[in-house]
Design a protein around this nucleic acid. Structure first.
Length: 147
DNA sequence: GCCAACGTTGGC
DNA sequence: GCCAACGTTGGC
């Protein structure tokens, strides 16, 4: 899951203990949260638009998908006039802090690792804020984070 | 259903 | 700040 650290950082998550992942307004990203992410699943926390951008730690899904209440809040920038209460369009999950890596695994670092070539995160032009990680990619990245 | 215009993301 | 990539909107 990606976040700009000046908007919401891993340090903030550590302080908050957990957070609702509000404001996702992309259908593909929503589908991952709504249909794929189960309680207890682990998540990489990625800082985008950062110095450097990269994976900064691990979080865990602490609550499965439920409607994002901001879609009904007229004052919110996440308000969606086309979404109805009895048929909400946008869902989110809660994630809780697990750990922060000792060192950021920057995009550059990740691109050096052959086994990660196929990762959606590293494909050109990808912008999805919530995306899947395979078991092998996960293990390889954890291994790298412990170096 | 096509596609141009426009807005957003995010690396650099 | 630039700009490529890509999603969404809306006219036709």
């Amino acid at each position: 899951m990606k976040s700009e650290p000046n908007v919401y950082s891993i340090d903030q998550l550590k302080e908050d203990k957990f957070t609702p992942w509000e404001g996702v307004r992309n259908y593909q990203a929503r589908n991952f949260m709504r249909d794929e992410m189960k309680k207890g699943d682990l998540v990489f926390f990625y800082h985008s638009n950062a110095e450097p951008s990269g994976i900064v730690g691990v979080a865990e899904v602490s609550r499965e998908a439920y409607p994002d209440s901001f879609q009904f809040d007229k004052k919110s920038k996440y308000f969606d006039s086309k979404s109805q209460r009895d048929n909400p369009r946008w869902y989110l999950v809660d994630i809780q802090f697990k750990k922060k890596f000792k060192k950021v695994l920057s995009l550059g670092d990740l691109k050096q690792i052959k086994e990660l070539d196929g990762m959606p995160l590293l494909q050109r032009g990808q912008r999805l804020s919530v995306q899947p990680v395979s078991e092998t990619e996960w293990k390889r990245i954890i291994e790298e984070s412990q170096k």
